[in-house]
């Protein structure tokens, strides 16, 4: 049972980790909590579902690629649009304004999907064959392996992008200081938009994985995972990208063990308590990335 729960936790953790990256990247460059990110996650799942339904071809590698491409591109584009419309005009407003604006966007996107697509849970079709392996009383499915490895690959790609490309380096510079980056010839607005695109895209991929894993999606599916992914980001130190990945896995495992060994009814409470306790005791996160307070 221990190993089984660990596998469940790692799968859940990979989704949280991917999802948490969007929060942490945006926080890194803008110092704001992108509350609407949970809706970006939800939109990703819906884009993926749309693609799954239109695709005529049977299960294949390219089909899978198309599904993820659609979800990531769609989510990324919406995230960028949201930044342009709702956050950029507020860049110099008091700190709480973008947060309130983000909540407004969140309400809007949820209700938009609810009214246009439907208020009911929608099943994710099982187009791709899933095999299960049994060993030592543990069941491991190909889907779980796929989720874990896709998440890890995407995270490695992000890491590569940040370290090796000009854009990635510009993004890191912007996160450190807007003004100085601008003086170095970086177009800060473009970089911020790009951050939203990349973060949103990863969130969208997490949304599809979530849909594949649970088999059903709903217009308000983003809320709970959103808070948890944010918790993961906080655990790793908001703004710290590697921290967010680690935080995601830690939280996923923690949640599954809490549900399995303590009480499945209180698993969400446990995630929220972790959030509160970490913010109060160690707001810089477990990995000690210093979050500088800018007054």
């Amino acid at each position: 049972m221990f190993i089984q729960q660990l596998i469940n936790g790692l799968t859940l953790g990979s989704i949280y980790a991917l999802f948490a990256l969007g929060y942490t990247m945006v926080y890194g460059v803008l110092l704001m909590i992108n509350f609407a990110h949970s809706e970006i996650f939800m939109l990703g799942a819906y884009c993926g579902l749309g693609m799954l339904c239109v695709l005529p071809m049977a299960a294949s590698g390219p089909a899978m690629f198309a599904v993820f491409a659609a979800a990531m591109f769609g989510s990324g584009a919406v995230a960028m649009l949201v930044e342009r419309v709702a956050y950029r005009p507020l860049r110099h407003a008091p700190r709480l304004s973008p947060l309130i604006s983000a909540i407004g966007i969140s309400i809007f996107l949820q209700n938009l999907i609810m009214l246009t697509v439907g208020a009911q849970s929608m099943p994710y079709p099982e187009k791709f064959p899933i095999r299960q392996f049994e060993f030592w009383g543990v069941t491991l499915s190909t889907l779980q392996i796929f989720i874990f490895f896709l998440a890890v690959i995407l995270m490695l790609l992000l890491n590569l992008f940040l370290r090796k490309t000009k854009m990635g380096k510009a993004m890191q510079a912007t996160a450190q200081n807007h003004l100085v980056s601008q003086l170095m010839g970086i177009n800060v607005n473009t970089i911020i938009a790009l951050t939203f695109f990349v973060g949103g895209g990863l969130g969208g991929a997490a949304g599809v994985l979530n849909g594949l894993y649970y088999g059903s999606i709903k217009y308000n599916m983003g809320f709970f995972p959103g808070i948890k992914a944010f918790t993961a980001a906080v655990l790793g130190g908001v703004g710290n990208i590697k921290g967010a990945m680690a935080g995601g896995f830690i939280l996923g495992i923690l949640e599954v063990f809490a549900a399995g060994y303590l009480s499945s009814e209180y698993k969400d409470v446990i995630a929220f308590v972790v959030l509160i306790v970490v913010l109060i005791i160690k707001p810089g996160g477990l990995f000690g990335e210093q979050v500088t307070e800018k007054i």
């Binding site: 709480l96 808070i227 929220f272 308590v273 509160i276 913010l279 707001p283």
Partner: peptide, 23 residues
């Protein structure tokens, strides 16, 4: 404990508390 937190963190913590009460 929570009033020491900065504005947006306070918002998130109160959100979490609200959900804890409901759950």
């Amino acid at each position: 404990p929570v009033l020491k937190l900065r504005g947006d963190y306070l918002a998130i913590v109160t959100l979490a508390f609200g959900e804890i009460v409901r759950l």
